[in-house]
Write a protein that binds this DNA or RNA. Structure first.
Length: 487
DNA sequence: CCTTACGCGATCAATCATCC
DNA sequence: GGATGATTGATCGCGTAAGG
């Protein structure tokens, strides 16, 4: 086994050894981050993040007088136990003010939106949005780091191969498909669980995983080529380039996911993109990565490189996330984004892709405005809500910044389903019931009794309702906000 | 024999092309 | 014009083979 750092080529240590701190030391990430604030904040992050995950740091946020540091760091072992979760939950409840809506029967738009805005700012002050250091690296630095890590990984495999029998060839990465490996953090959604760190090893020796091993090597090699040619590729293109090897696009997806988890590098910086699926509209202007001005006055595709967004400006009072494209189009037809209150509407067209979630996170952290979500009243609608709000299982292990934990769900609630006529309701299928069982086992549902309650109600009455059941989506959204009817 | 790792299939939502 | 199937992206569950 090659000792980290012993290479004459100055190669960063492998990701499954003690990587983060040493890499930071080698690359001087800490010192680059700048002012005193960030140093102090980056200390506190270790209270809930894995030591190996130290690369993700708090943004240097404005200090608001009277506020304490984001998380009280009393535990020295960097672990994260149940009692801490309870404390954080109580704290979040306080910060969110969930128990104290605007108490007025004739609460107006500005009152409610102002209150929500204050909650959002409080939340982000208490849980400063994380920033990914990858975003602020120079082109050259990013090149050095990614290529260095991949070359180091491949080199260690070759070295191991030369002393065959001593160290078997294999790639080790976290078991990103196991819920027991993650835990819920009220401020940051799903985070890796430090007490349980089961790793998967894809070994060349195993007959079953030899193919996967070789495909991971192929993908790593392809990424090096991309850096060499200074180009990007979509997952689909990568699949077609090596169609005989990959056999299906699922194999490409799997390899990219493994590499992102293993090296803890955001997918974008591996130079592998996915075709953007989401749309947005509303009063917003920004420059994309190519420096071209984007105006969201009508339905506009979400840009692929979120980190390249600059000169963002918007007078929107809130962001509305809708599940389906059909609902988005209905709101576009009604000119919803300008007619009532200036707002932004976003859809991921079903299960949201990474781009859509990154874009939402970017808007939420930069504009500091409330985020509302309109989803179907069925198990999959709830799952999509949770994906936006708390994050998804595999992405927990990547270095992507995605969850918006303060997002408000404004419907359709299973508890309101009796308001719809029977013809608009559908009985829960066998698959729906399985999804409900799955949802009830998730850590974030356990932490949110109001969500759990809704799931149990749906399970009890056995019916689901889609947003199509609502006559006017715009009116429905307005009604829900004005009555402060959200979860 | 039991656990673990892995592959495959199923599912959802949406779009687009093709066929009747 | 409506129905159908393929495609794209994301996720979960189950069966199976390997290994201790």
């Amino acid at each position: 086994m090659a000792a980290p750092g012993s290479s004459p080529f100055h190669i960063p240590s492998s990701p499954h050894s003690d990587s983060g701190a040493s890499l930071d030391r080698i690359l001087g990430v800490d010192s680059e981050c700048g002012d005193d604030d960030s140093v102090q904040l980056s200390d506190s992050i270790e209270t809930f993040l894995d030591a190996s995950e130290i690369e993700v740091k708090f943004a240097p946020s404005e200090h608001i007088p009277g506020t304490s540091s984001p998380i009280h760091s009393s535990n020295k072992d960097h672990s994260f136990n149940d009692s801490q979760v309870e404390i954080e939950l109580a704290l979040t409840d306080h910060v969110l003010g969930t128990s104290s809506p605007v108490h007025s029967s004739e609460a107006s738009w500005p009152d409610i939106l102002d209150a929500l805005k204050v909650q959002t700012v409080h939340f982000q002050t208490h849980f400063p949005p994380m920033v990914c250091p990858w975003t602020f690296m120079s082109h050259e630095e990013r090149y050095q780091r990614v290529v260095g890590q991949i070359e180091g990984l491949l080199l260690s495999q070759i070295q191991n191969g030369m002393v065959q029998g001593d160290a078997p060839l294999g790639f080790t990465y976290p078991d990103y498909s196991d819920w027991s490996q993650v835990q819920y953090h009220p401020g940051y959604g799903l985070r890796p669980n430090l007490s349980a760190s089961r790793m998967i090893t894809t070994r060349l020796e195993n007959r079953g995983s030899a193919t996967k091993y070789s495909l991971i090597v192929l993908t790593l090699w392809s990424i090096l080529e991309l850096f060499d040619q200074d180009s990007f590729v979509t997952k689909r293109e990568l699949y077609y380039q090596h169609i005989n090897h990959y056999r299906s696009q699922v194999a490409v997806d799997e390899c990219v996911k493994v590499i992102a988890c293993m090296l803890r590098i955001p997918r974008l910086h591996l130079r592998i993109l996915s075709t953007s699926k989401g749309l947005f509209m509303g009063n917003i202007v920004f420059h994309n990565a190519q420096g071209i001005q984007v105006i969201g006055s009508h339905a506009t595709p979400i840009p692929q490189d979120i980190t390249g967004i600059s000169q963002l400006a918007s007078d929107a009072k809130f962001i509305l996330v809708v599940e389906k494209d059909a609902v988005f189009q209905r709101l576009a037809d009604d000119n919803f984004a300008v007619i009532y209150q200036p707002c932004l509407v976003i859809t991921g067209k079903g299960v949201p892709d990474l781009n859509t979630r990154q874009f939402l996170y970017h808007l939420w952290t930069h504009l500091k405005i409330p985020v509302l979500a309109l989803m179907d009243g069925d198990p999959f609608g709830l799952e999509i809500l949770c994906t936006y709000r708390f994050g998804s299982l595999p992405m927990t292990w990547s270095q992507e910044l995605l969850p918006v934990p303060i997002m408000k769900w404004i419907g359709i609630f299973p508890s309101d389903i009796h308001q719809f006529s029977r013809e608009h309701l559908k009985p829960l299928s066998k698959v729906d019931c399985a999804k409900i069982r799955s949802l009830l086992q998730r850590p974030y549902v356990e932490a949110h009794p109001e969500l759990k309650q809704e799931i149990l109600i749906m399970k009890d009455h056995g019916w689901k309702a889609e947003i199509e059941a609502v006559d006017s989506v715009g009116d429905f959204v307005i009604r829900q906000i004005l009555s402060q009817h959200w979860r």
